[in-house]
Amino acid sequence: MSASESLVPGAVNFRDVGGLPARAGRTRHGVLYRSGNLAAVEAPGAEAFRRLGVRRVVDLRSDDEVAHAPSRVGDVETLRVPLFLGSLASFFVEDLSLTELYRLLLARSGDRIVTAVRGILGAQPVLVHCTVGKDRTGMTVALALAASGVDEDAVVADYARTESMLPAWRNAEVTARVRAAYPSARNLEELATRSPAPVMRGILDEVRAQHGSAEGYLRAHGMDDGELALLRRTLIAE
C-alpha cells in the first residue's frame, strides 16, 4: 500500500491505528480505525469496509456536513458527535492557525471529545472519522492514544501521517476552492491540507501543562478512572 493509499477505497485517509508502541505494549490491530468521510465509497470500498467488521462509527461532523456528504458503507451503528461548535467557514473567516483551532477544540468541546472517546469503548472494531480525518479525528485519536499510554512520539507521528495520506489532486482542488472564497486567508493551506508534527507536539505540551496529562484532560471533562482503564485495555495489547 502506497503512502496515500486508503485502507478502504473511496475513503480518504482510512487507516488502522494498530501497532503503535506504548508503555505496556502496542496498540491492537483491527480495533480502532480513523478516516475522512465515507461519501465517495463505492462497491469495492463498501466490501473492504464490510471485511473489516466495523461495529460502530463515531462521526464527528456537523449536521450540514453529514447532509452534504452522507456515508455510503451500508447499515452500521453510528454515534454522531459534532465537535465544531462553529461552522467550518468561520475558521477560514477568522483565519485561524491549526494551533488556534485545536486550542478552541480543547477549550470548547471537551465534553464532546469525551463522548467520542467513550464511543471507542464497548463496540470494536470502531471507526472515528470527520470530513478529512485530520483535525477533529486527529485531536480525538491523539488524546485517546496518549491517555492509553502510547509513546508521545508515536502519537505525534500518527497525527502527522495524515499529510502523506491526502492525495495531491484533493489538496489542489480544496485549496483552490477555499482560496476563491477566502482570498485574504493566510492559514487556509495549513487548515485544509497540513498536519505538522510540531503542532500536535505543542498541543500535547499544553494539555500536560494545564491538566497534567491527556488522562487528566479527559478526566476533567467527565471520564472516570474505570473508563480510562477500559480504554487502555481496549487499545493496548501487553
Rank of each mutant, 00 (worst) to 15 (best):
S2W: 13
S4Y: 12
E5T: 13
N13H: 09
F14K: 11
V17F: 04
L20I: 02
P21F: 02
R23N: 10
R26M: 01
T27G: 02
R28W: 01
Y33V: 05
R34K: 08
S35H: 08
G36Q: 02
N37M: 05
L38A: 09
L38Q: 04
L38P: 10
A40R: 13
A40Y: 06
V41K: 10
V41G: 05
E42M: 05
E42R: 15
G45A: 11
G45P: 09
A48N: 06
F49E: 01
R51H: 15
R55Q: 14
D59S: 11
L60I: 12
L60H: 14
L60K: 07
R61F: 05
D64Y: 08
E65D: 09
E65N: 00
A67N: 03
R72S: 12
R72M: 09
D75Q: 15
L79P: 07
L83V: 11
L85R: 15
L88C: 00
E94W: 15
D95R: 01
T99D: 06
T99H: 03
T99G: 12
E100A: 15
Y102K: 07
Y102G: 04
L104C: 00
L104M: 13
L104K: 14
L104P: 00
R108E: 15
S109K: 04
G110L: 07
R112A: 14
A116D: 08
A116K: 08
V117M: 11
G119I: 08
Q124L: 00
V126S: 09
H129D: 00
C130I: 07
V132T: 14
G133R: 02
K134L: 01
D135G: 01
R136G: 06
T137W: 03
M139D: 02
L145C: 07
A146F: 09
A147T: 09
S148M: 04
D151C: 12
A154D: 11
V156M: 10
V156L: 11
V156Y: 13
A157H: 10
P167M: 10
A168M: 03
A168V: 14
R170C: 01
V174R: 12
R177A: 15
R177I: 00
V178P: 04
R179W: 03
A181R: 15
P183V: 02
S184D: 11
S184T: 14
A185P: 10
R186H: 12
R186K: 12
N187C: 05
E190S: 15
L191R: 10
R194L: 08
P196Q: 03
P196Y: 07
P196F: 09
A197D: 05
A197H: 03
M200I: 09
R201E: 02
I203R: 04
L204K: 08
D205R: 12
V207Y: 07
A209M: 06
H211T: 02
E215F: 03
L218H: 06
R219K: 12
H221D: 04
G222V: 08
G222S: 07
G226S: 06
E227S: 08
E227P: 09
R233Q: 15
T234F: 01
L235N: 07
I236K: 02
I236L: 06
A237H: 10
A237S: 13
E238G: 14
